[in-house]
Amino acid sequence: MCLLLFAYRCHCDYPLLLIANRDEYYARPSAPAALWEGLGLVAGRDLQGGGTWAGMARGRVAAVTNIREPGRAVPEDLLSRGEIPLDFLAGNSTPYQFALGLQGQRYRGFNALLFDLEADKPLICAGNRHAPFPIPIGVHGISNGAPDAPWPKVERGKKGLRRIMRGIGDTITEDNFVRPALALLRHSQPAPEAELPHTGVGPARERALSPIFVHIDNRKSSSPGTAAPDNDQAGYGTRASTLIAVRKTGRCQLWEQSFAQGEPEGPLRHFALG
């Protein structure tokens, strides 16, 4: 994922509400959210790395986002970051135990959100650029930098999620949560140049990556017969918007909308566990 927005213990019946966008190369093969047979979890599937970007099991949620670090050396014996949420959801370790056991040196930079309703420390942010720490009560956001770093998309997303939270009554519905959350995740206006972070990819790329919903179509700038490098030929952008709601009873719901080249692909999928 490239943007995680979440409200932790901000609603009396829903200890965790998560909305997120997964940004990825359009050429990277993926499968939409589904039940993983034999594992009791629901998640999308990265068909190249074998893992997932976000998913749920009963009373458990996990999601991962990368850290933008251009030019940093690739670790030896590299592991896919998508294995992190998959392994957590398929296991029974507490979030903190799981975070301590991660071989951080074998991954590119990441932040992972790990939630277990029954754990002493239910919500942990793991990563290999910081020690694992419990998330405090409130509305938070993680993009491709430090947790809650005030990037424009993070600040805009947190403001939008707070507004959505004010409209939720006793229970979430399509009208008070699903539709407004998906609309927020489709916000595509780039940030003003003065507000852009500086992550080493250059001003043009920083601006293209600054909206909540990203769409970079490199086909428009490629001459006929000229190949762009590697996966970037088809472009890069938001491939899925994922919503997860955990009720205090342990019941979890997940909605996911896939995208191709900036447009919805297939129906909105909905799953419930517990």
Rank of each mutant, 00 (worst) to 15 (best):
H187C: 13
D232F: 14
S188P: 05
I212G: 09
R247T: 01
F213L: 04
P192I: 06
E206I: 06
S222V: 01
P197N: 09
P229V: 06
N231P: 09
C252W: 01
P190A: 08
T249H: 01
T238F: 07
R247P: 00
A228E: 11
R186N: 12
G200L: 11
T242P: 07
R186Y: 04
L209M: 13
I244Y: 02
G202W: 03
F213S: 06
D230F: 12
V246C: 10
I244C: 03
T199H: 11
H215W: 07
S221C: 07
S223W: 11
G235I: 06
Q189A: 15
T199P: 00
P190R: 02
V246P: 00
A208L: 14
D217M: 04
S188Q: 13
H198M: 11
R247E: 14
L254Y: 00
W255C: 01
L243C: 12
R251V: 08
E193Q: 13
A245W: 01
A234F: 10
H215A: 11
A208F: 05
R205H: 07
P197V: 02
A208Q: 13
P192W: 09
N231F: 15
G200D: 11
G235R: 01
A228N: 04
I212W: 08
N218P: 05
V214H: 03
K220P: 00
L185I: 10
P203H: 07
I212Y: 10
A204Q: 14
S221T: 14
Q189M: 12
E193S: 14
S188I: 01
L185Q: 09
C252P: 01
P203N: 05
R186C: 15
R251F: 00
D230I: 00
A208N: 05
S221V: 14
T242E: 11
T249E: 10
G202I: 05
V214W: 01
S210W: 04
T238W: 04
G237R: 07
T238N: 03
R251G: 00
H198N: 15
G200C: 09
H215K: 12
S210Q: 05
A240S: 15
G235M: 04
Y236N: 03
A194K: 11
S221E: 12
A191K: 03
L196A: 08
L254S: 06
A204F: 05
Q253H: 13
D217F: 03
L254D: 03
L209S: 08
A240P: 05
V201W: 07
A194I: 07
A227P: 00
V246N: 06
E195A: 14
R219C: 12
R251S: 09
F213V: 12
S222P: 00
Q233A: 15
S188V: 01
L185S: 07
L184H: 04
P192R: 10
P192E: 12
P203W: 07
H198A: 14
S221R: 12
P192D: 13
E195T: 10
E195M: 11
A194V: 09
V214G: 10
P229K: 07
G237N: 07
T242D: 14
